[in-house]
Structures are given as structure tokens and as C-alpha cells.
Design a protein around this nucleic acid. Structure first.
Lengths: 231, 231
DNA sequence: TAGATTGTTAATCGATTAACAATC
DNA sequence: TAGATTGTTAATCGATTAACAATC
């Protein structure tokens, strides 16, 4: 067996590639640029230039010293690396407020993701049309997955149902799950799960908000103490 | 001036506190437990026990050797640390699909966050009732912020408007922003921004999905090569 | 006392960053 | 050649984890 190519892109880098991708698309489409320096790209992406160069170096050496990176080529490389040259049809389970918003979210299709099926278990939701799709019963998951080649499952159910839906996804062979439900789901180790949790984001923000306010209060207190300074 | 207390909780720890909080609430409410060991809490939160103990040690030494942590007390400490004992009213700018879903999202109020105002700029949206609130024009932001003590701004607009909304938020003194728009916003350094980007999550998932599939394919290829092995 | 579990240390790992030789 | 910018090295920083003494 040939030696396995040791192309291990760090997680932190993978998480930044989509940000670079977006910046590059902006440069290409709206500003008609042909090349970009690590410095420019760093500014657009909100990181520093050394990080950009290091990140891009994991994809190979695609820049030109003294010139920068060819935007089109870099776009192609990042797109390929992220697997975006392939089609990954996605299904949403749970057609409540959030599920509906996700189903009709333009950003997905704009970035090449197709939501091809919606599932629920409530009689008054199954059969309804949402965002151009008829909501199916979760019991019909397997059939839809086989027919449509669905490879990404999106959980938009209440927390109580999340684990069961995750297991159903796993049972039908789905290996990538995006979980919007506010609960942890357990899956086998070969299944990729990413979690988006609105409450957690707000709670983290609360921490930093509290700190910001504490700093402002401390500064104010110091100001009051210091200003009427006796000679 | 007294020496500033050097209580610097690492970012990674702050991001995990809400997960512990949720697990502890589950233990307290649904299972009537009084104490919890780092081992148990780790299992619920999906991390390892050493990490739990290290994380909790930043809050102080609240455990009892040989026994574990008192759940009620730990709940109180984490809640306080995250700033959740305070009320942080939030406003949403952009009442499209996503904004509506967020406005009616039960999870926020369940976890102590109040959405107190909705803003848009479109005539046919302003004045509409969504989730029990009348949508206001963005021009009335300052008034509402002052009256309601709004401290968190949520951006749910299209990407093009995100920067302008962020600036309006900053102008009226908001120091914490949750950005759902798929674009980077620039704010002064004392403003806390967190970004939730649905497309980026899917793109990262795409990378790992591609890798998972490559591994499966390689395994299959090896199987085919190895099974009809000549002597 | 024996068993359980914390809190902390120290080793390790991974990510960030400045610096600069290589080179367009 | 002079100026610009990459790609990589090495230092540094922050996060993770195993191990275990402390102690309930």
C-alpha cells in the first residue's frame, strides 16, 4: 500500500477556510481583483497575515512570492479542500419555527447546499408544503435518503427528540449531523456532529457583557476617586 | 487602588460553562440529584473528567473530596459567573425568516433571555406583530434601547445590511452583538461580537463528510485488493 | 480506617505569531 | 537590481490531560 498522504489540516484551519472563501468570493465578484496578498486577505477575514499564510500553506504552496495569491486558483483549491465541489444533499428533521426558517433560508442554496427533504412526526405538519417541499413523516426517512442521496442531517426538533432523531439519522447511514437542538446527542465515533446552540451563544455573550460592564464601572469608580484630587 | 483580582477564566472554559449548566439543570430537575462527580458531569457534557475539574477550579474550590460537587451550589456559581443572574434585554434587527424564528424561539425565554424589541426598515414589516411584539423602525432604536435597557443586539438581516446595523447598535451604546448575518462586521475593540453562521457550519461539516467518505472508500478499496490474495 | 473524589501539578499537545530567508 | 511578499522556522502561548497527593 502506498504511504498515506499525511495531509492533516488542523481543525482551527478548517474552521477558517470558509471565512477565507467568503472573502475571496467578495474580492472576485464585487471588486474584480485577480490576486490577493496574505495581508489583504487577513484584513478581510479579521485575522493576521501570518495565520493566513500558515493556513494556506496546508493546502500546498499556491502563492507567488512578491505577488500574492491568484484568487481564482485559491478559490478552487479551498472549494475542493472543503468538499464543496461535491453535492451533499441535506434533510431537516423538525419543521417548527426554526426548521421553517432553515428550510427557506436563502444562504444555504446560495452556497451550494440543497435541502432536499423535510421531516416531522406531527400529523398537522406532515403533508404541509414548506419552502417548496412537502413535509414527510420521519418514518419515510430511509426511503428519501436512498432516493436523494442525502448525506447531511439537520436536527431542528425540540431537545427531547434530538437524540432519537440522531439515532434515526445514524441508522439510515447519515455520517454528518448539524444539531440545532439545545441538547447533546450521542453518536458513533465515525459520525461528524456540529452543534449550533443559540442559548449557549447568548450565555457566552452574557459573560463578556458582564465583564465589559464591570470594567466600565471600575473605570468610572476610579474616575470619581481620582478627579477631586487634593493637592 | 486594591490589586485587581486576577480571575482570568480561559475562553475555552467560558465556552463550556453553559454546557455544564445545562447538564446540571437536567440533573437537578429531572433526576433529583444533590451532588455530582466530575466523572458524571463529564459524561453528560461530553468531555473528560480532568477538564471538568480544571474548568470548575477557575470558579473557586467548590467541590468536596470523596463526595463531588453540590449541584445547587455549583448551579448558582456558574449562573453568577456567566452573568445570568442579571437581566440582559435583547433586540433583534431584521425581521425576515430567521428574525421571526428567533423572535418566537422558546429557548431564549426558557434560559432567561428576553427579546424586548424587533426592528426592521421595510414599511410592510414595521408595525407588524411578531411573537407578541410590534416591529419598530430601526430609526427608533435609540429610544427603545434607553427605555428598555437593551444591552444585547442580534443581527438577523441580509449580509449587506449587517455592518450598518452593527454601527447603529454601537452608536446607541450596545456592547454585545450576536451576528447571524453571513458577513464579518467591524466594531470597536470594547464591543463583544459572537457570530453564528449557518453556511460556515455546513461547509465545515462538508470537509469532515468528505474525509469520512474518503476513509470509507479507501477501506473498501483495500478490502477488494486484499481479499483475493494470491499465495 | 478504606474508598472515593477533588484540586493541582507537570507533561504534552496544538495553535499562534514574529521573523526572515527565499524568491518572484 | 530593488521592492514586495511568500513559505517556513522557531519561539511562545494557551489548552488538554494523566497522574497523584490531599482530604473528605
Amino acid at each position: 500500500m502506498a504511504l498515506m498522504r499525511t495531509r492533516t489540516i488542523p481543525e482551527a484551519t478548517v474552521a477558517r477556510l470558509p471565512i477565507y472563501l467568503r472573502s475571496l468570493l467578495d474580492l472576485a465578484e464585487n471588486r474584480g481583483a485577480m490576486t490577493v496578498s496574505s495581508e489583504q486577505l487577513a484584513n478581510l477575514a479579521g485575522v493576521n497575515a501570518a495565520k493566513v499564510r500558515k493556513d494556506l500553506s496546508y493546502l500546498g504552496s499556491y502563492g507567488t512570492r512578491g505577488v500574492g495569491y491568484d484568487i481564482e486558483y485559491l478559490l478552487y483549491q479551498i472549494t475542493r479542500e472543503l468538499g464543496l465541489t461535491q453535492d451533499w444533499p441535506a434533510a431537516i428533521a423538525g419543521v417548527g419555527n426554526l426548521g421553517r426558517a432553515l428550510a427557506s433560508y436563502k444562504g444555504f442554496s446560495e452556497r451550494g447546499f440543497r435541502i432536499t427533504a423535510l421531516f416531522d412526526i406531527l400529523d398537522d405538519v406532515v403533508g404541509e408544503e414548506v419552502g417548496g417541499l412537502i413535509v414527510k413523516h420521519l418514518d419515510d426517512l430511509k426511503e428519501a435518503v436512498n432516493e436523494q442521496g442525502i448525506s447531511i442531517g439537520i436536527i431542528a426538533t425540540p431537545p427531547m427528540s434530538a437524540q432519537e432523531v440522531a439515532e434515526r439519522f445514524v441508522d439510515v447511514g447519515i455520517k454528518s449531523i448539524l444539531n440545532f437542538a439545545p441538547s447533546v446527542v450521542n453518536v458513533p465515533p465515525d459520525v461528524n456532529v456540529r452543534k449550533v446552540d443559540l442559548s449557549i451563544e447568548l450565555q457566552i455573550l452574557s459573560f463578556y457583557q458582564q465583564r465589559t460592564q464591570a470594567i466600565a464601572t471600575a473605570r468610572e469608580a476610579n474616575r470619581r476617586l481620582n478627579i477631586p484630587r487634593p493637592l
